[in-house]
Computed example of a mutant assay.
Amino acid sequence: MEIKEFCLAHKFDMSKCAVDSGGGSFTMTELKTSPVEFLNLAEDDFERGGLSTLINATTNAKRAIVCQLDQLLISFGYPSLKWNVPKKIERLRALGLLTPSLLRKVVDMRNILEHEYKAPDLQSVEDALDVASLFVMSASAMFIPFEDVLEFSLPESSVRDSSVTHIIAGLDREPRGVFYTVYAYEPGDFSSRCVGQCEVPSGHIIFEAMVKLSASLMLRYKVDQAFENLDKAYAQL
């Protein structure tokens, strides 16, 4: 059952809800070579100095960034290894995860090196390393831990119109994919009782809106925009 059908079946209006986030068991997928390892190689190259090492530092700084993009996207169930960099950045922005605009400058600098054979200058390489380090470290920090549970609760004034008082969405990763499992609860004599569930798969517009909301709540950054984004996503269904 689709999430909108699920909410309609339980007469649950997500746009009227208060939202809390929590949890923290969702971790990034391990890759054979990590972004940090590429970052260490770039920094080692830079320290040695000379034209060849500046070129190697630029290459490895880009690899650190792209590897971090892939690690984040793969963790949320996206087949990003097949995508070009602009598409990776686009999907990561949709998820509300960290994508500084400066990333584009590092990628462009590497492309100029590859296609126009222009050697990077010392300051540009140093800036590239700073951007790569900032991106890799900040992305890793989001997963210590990543809050993977969202609870949507109706205010008392709306409860009488719905038998369900709240729904809980938990982020799961299994061999078959990454998805939110959404549970609906109605009040009982002693505790809430689960009366139904559905799944929201990776790539779904609501999946991306939920990840974006979790990230915004964790960082306390652009929270209102994240709520607006969820409402717009739900309205498109």
Score class of each variant (00 low, 15 high):
residue 174 E to I: 07
residue 185 Y to K: 00
residue 166 H to L: 12
residue 150 L to G: 02
residue 5 E to L: 13
residue 132 A to E: 03
residue 96 G to R: 04
residue 111 N to G: 07
residue 11 K to D: 15
residue 71 Q to P: 15
residue 137 M to T: 15
residue 5 E to V: 12
residue 159 V to I: 15
residue 103 L to G: 06
residue 156 E to N: 12
residue 10 H to N: 15
residue 214 S to E: 05
residue 50 G to Y: 04
residue 203 G to Q: 08
residue 195 V to L: 00
residue 24 G to L: 00
residue 125 V to C: 03
residue 190 F to K: 13
residue 1 M to T: 03
residue 191 S to W: 08
residue 106 V to S: 07
residue 25 S to K: 15
residue 109 M to I: 07
residue 209 A to N: 06
residue 235 A to H: 10
residue 99 T to K: 02
residue 14 M to A: 09
residue 82 K to D: 14
residue 72 L to F: 04
residue 59 T to V: 13
residue 233 A to R: 06
residue 185 Y to N: 04
residue 122 L to R: 09
residue 213 L to C: 07
residue 53 T to D: 10
residue 207 F to I: 02
residue 177 G to D: 11
residue 97 L to K: 00
residue 5 E to M: 09
residue 15 S to D: 08
residue 149 V to N: 00
residue 137 M to H: 15
residue 180 Y to R: 08
residue 135 F to H: 04
residue 35 P to A: 02
residue 196 G to D: 14
residue 176 R to M: 14
residue 4 K to R: 06
residue 2 E to M: 10
residue 12 F to Y: 05
residue 64 A to C: 07
residue 166 H to T: 12
residue 117 Y to H: 10
residue 119 A to R: 06
residue 100 P to D: 02
residue 113 L to F: 10
residue 171 L to A: 00
residue 201 P to D: 12
residue 120 P to W: 11
residue 108 D to I: 10
residue 157 S to R: 02
residue 53 T to S: 13
residue 56 N to Y: 02
residue 128 A to H: 08
residue 103 L to S: 08
residue 157 S to W: 02
residue 7 C to P: 04
residue 200 V to W: 01
residue 38 F to M: 02
residue 111 N to P: 10
residue 187 P to W: 05
residue 36 V to W: 07
residue 207 F to V: 02
residue 164 V to P: 07
residue 91 R to S: 12
residue 136 V to Y: 05
residue 143 F to E: 03
residue 157 S to A: 06
residue 137 M to D: 14
residue 44 D to Q: 13
residue 69 L to G: 00
residue 156 E to A: 14
residue 173 R to P: 00
residue 97 L to G: 01
residue 64 A to E: 04
residue 63 R to F: 01
residue 216 S to P: 15
residue 126 E to A: 14
residue 18 A to H: 10
residue 157 S to H: 01
residue 211 V to R: 04
residue 61 A to T: 13
residue 85 V to F: 01
residue 119 A to G: 06
residue 214 S to I: 09
residue 7 C to Q: 01
residue 95 L to P: 01
residue 115 H to D: 10
residue 25 S to C: 07
residue 158 S to Q: 13
residue 194 C to Y: 03
residue 185 Y to C: 07
residue 61 A to M: 11
residue 204 H to V: 09
residue 214 S to K: 03
residue 106 V to E: 04
residue 144 I to V: 13
residue 66 V to N: 08
residue 195 V to A: 00
residue 5 E to Q: 15
residue 234 Y to Q: 05
residue 13 D to S: 09
residue 107 V to N: 11
residue 144 I to D: 09
residue 85 V to H: 02
residue 135 F to E: 00
residue 47 E to I: 02
residue 32 K to S: 09
residue 83 W to E: 09
residue 151 E to R: 12
residue 176 R to H: 12
residue 118 K to Y: 10
residue 193 R to V: 15
residue 20 D to G: 03
residue 6 F to A: 05
residue 141 A to Y: 12
residue 57 A to G: 01
residue 163 S to D: 14
residue 28 M to T: 11
residue 150 L to M: 04
residue 236 Q to G: 00
residue 199 E to I: 05
residue 60 N to Q: 08
residue 40 N to L: 11
residue 170 G to F: 11
residue 171 L to F: 01
residue 45 D to M: 06
residue 170 G to E: 15
residue 3 I to R: 01
residue 203 G to M: 06
residue 47 E to F: 03
residue 49 G to E: 02
residue 213 L to A: 06
residue 123 Q to D: 11
residue 86 P to R: 03
residue 187 P to S: 09
residue 181 T to H: 06
residue 40 N to H: 14
residue 201 P to T: 13
residue 167 I to T: 09
